[in-house]
Design a protein around this nucleic acid. Sequence first.
DNA 1: ATGGAAACGGAGCAGGCGTTCCGCTGTGGG
DNA 2: CCCACAGCGGAACGCCTGCTCCGTTTCCAT
Lengths: 182, 182
Amino acid sequence: MRRADARSNRDRVVAAAREAFAAAGLEVPMREVARRAGVGVATLYRHFPTRTELVATVLAERVADCGVQMRRALDDPDPWRALAGVVRVFAERQIHDRALNEALLGPGAVGAAFQEERREHAQALNVLVVRARAAGVLRGGVDADDVRAGLLAIASLRRLPAATSARVIGRVADLVLAGIRA
Amino acid sequence: MRRADARSNRDRVVAAAREAFAAAGLEVPMREVARRAGVGVATLYRHFPTRTELVATVLAERVADCGVQMRRALDDPDPWRALAGVVRVFAERQIHDRALNEALLGPGAVGAAFQEERREHAQALNVLVVRARAAGVLRGGVDADDVRAGLLAIASLRRLPAATSARVIGRVADLVLAGIRA
DNA sequence: ATGGAAACGGAGCAGGCGTTCCGCTGTGGG
DNA sequence: CCCACAGCGGAACGCCTGCTCCGTTTCCAT
């Protein structure tokens, strides 16, 4: 089995897809990913039999990254800083990675692959909110679903024209934080 | 000139497009709009030479509606109620009309046709914010761009699956209001 | 009633997408 | 070193889109 070149091609495809998805969203044509990777479409399809699988592979990395951030937040002894940090990091990522957004907002197929991770994140967020509430830093009546809604709002903004989205995302993140704080 | 049937067909096309766009977004195929209107595609194209023109025609109605709401808010003597009302009405509309969202967020071509109305709305919003700030009901540092960012966030949420978007939009609207209030 | 133009419908065109097929290339075990 | 075959590139297929062409229908002035 001649793995050397095949494996290197696979890596190049994943790298090209990662960049393309981050920059232009998940709807980049397969031809374009292949072109960026410097391979033919057939090569791409040999490693990823369907578009969905390529997308899932690239997103898996990103989702894993988010898990790391979450665990870091859980280690923070300051409840407000932990929660605010999650919101800010999330916003920051949305600014730089368009794919992440569509993983959350995309209809069924794409997001479905990460149900487990998603539940894990939700669990962690619940913990952060409970701690923050116990510390009295949250406005009355605010619950984890409010924070989730805020995060979704931030994520959705990624679809704005790139020129303005960064600033708007920053403002909304501040708005959300002001809206949940006591 | 045989206007009777032509005119009635035009009306049916606009009505069909309005419904289809509100329900399924601006990306509904022309064939589908024609089918819903009970006419052939050629008829549709005779009245609207290009897809963009059909979209613009339908959105013009919606944008005009928003202008009415804005003027109503300007007449409200209570500055907070006026501003909060705008946010709430806007959120309510996003829930029921998917097209409105894409008019705001869609890239260039679509939104460009309404620059004038948009500026008018922006102007009105500025007035509302200035009044609210003068009345001391806004948190320090909040400006019109923050409110605009909040509205954009609400609008962006329309792309979530229909099942959850209504509730999430409601929560975010509350979050935004909490975030700007003193 | 009747002619002719305005208006119609649906087949057809060009272009873009995801995916597949197939003849060639170049790698690495013997 | 050499040649079998894993692996390759790009042309091709089927489907969907916006849009156009043209033979046929239908209204309305006469």
